[in-house]
Write a protein that binds this DNA or RNA. Structure first.
Lengths: 203, 203
DNA sequence: GTCTATACGGCGATAGAC
DNA sequence: GTCTATCGCCGTATAGAC
């Protein structure tokens, strides 16, 4: 039975999330968040201990909801080719729908690398053990080229994530509108999977 | 005839550059810079208008010196294969030697995306007209696969740059020391060029 | 437990004297 | 060009009302 009116905590989270998305972590102040949520400034420190913890809370919530699914693909029991295609495709979809994620991720990573490294949700997302083992098995069976699994994994996430980090640059260079950038991202699904599959010797 | 004693401005730049490299953009304060340079705080605002402008000044100086060389490779009159190999190799070398570049790039990108887009040095670095034209010529001549030149260029920079952005994550996952990460980056030279060359159908 | 009012210390930036 | 003094904002902490 959902409440009709948002609790103070919910209002706070909603306002902070929206502002962080709109302006980025550094460009929104705590007083601005409180004002938008229509609450007293101190309540931010009552419910969360600090602005940074508030951000982490929001970040983890978003990451966890998306990361779980992506991780399942990586750990699933499907062919390497299908896995790479599915992973890149759905990862790109996630980033198209949540432009906030990349900016958040890089901002926190830059400001406080130890924190990102320690975050459970990130460790989960970037744990590619099953995927690496699968690559090694395929190599032993001679079905793919000899490659460093870690390098391959880094290549995939680089190809998927980085274009979203430089979205503004890409849009400016090509005179893309937002929807044109999304189209460009859609086309990347094919580009990225092909590039990775070619490299390991599939297709 | 070089001066033996540094001018105030030079002391300021030297101190700021060093701190900036050591600690990253967000983690150095203006009072710390002034103290290290042995000058009064206000002189920072006298010579540069703000901390951000000071850091931009330093960033542009480093970027321009490196970007010019990378841009020359991209615009040079050598074979596509050699060009891709040389560009990725030397780009990775630049980032190994100047971790500051990626850190600053990401900091500004998050804080002020319009600024990155407006920076002349960045615009120069990311202008790939000659390279794109060369790709198109090779396609017309049937020597490489049909590909979107913009996609290829974005792939190259993603594969080269992003691993440096997530350096801490990579080091943590693999228990890399700093020198092991550099070795990993050295190996990426071959990985990245192979991956791109395979994709466009060379080699 | 929930909320208000207010204060603290640090930051980047600036006005104005010399 | 250089310095002192100070401003306004920020994130945070706390005393105390309901």
């Amino acid at each position: 039975m959902p409440k009709k009116t948002l609790s103070t905590k919910e209002k706070l989270l909603a306002a902070a999330t929206e502002l962080f998305i709109q302006k980025g972590f550094d460009r929104v102040g705590v007083r601005e968040i409180a004002a938008k949520a229509g609450i007293n400034l101190s309540l931010m420190n009552y419910y969360f201990q600090s602005k940074e913890r508030l951000l982490e809370h929001i970040f983890e919530k978003i990451i966890i909801s998306k990361a779980t699914h992506l991780k399942q693909i990586l750990d699933s029991n499907i062919s390497l080719e299908d896995k790479i295609k599915k992973y890149t495709t759905e990862y790109i979809d996630v980033l198209i729908d949540n432009p906030l994620i990349v900016s958040f991720f890089l901002a926190i990573l830059h400001r406080n690398p130890e924190k990102i490294v320690a975050m459970a949700s990130i460790r989960t997302l970037y744990n590619s053990e099953v995927f690496c083992k699968q690559l090694e098995d395929e190599m032993k069976a001679g079905r793919i080229r000899q490659v460093d699994p870690e390098q391959v994994f880094i290549c995939i996430v680089s190809l998927v994530i980085f274009p979203f980090a430089i979205k503004d640059l890409i849009m400016d260079r090509n005179n893309f509108s937002s929807s044109e950038f999304n189209k460009f991202s859609q086309q990347r699904k094919e580009v990225v999977s092909q590039m990775v599959l070619n490299f390991i010797g599939l297709k």
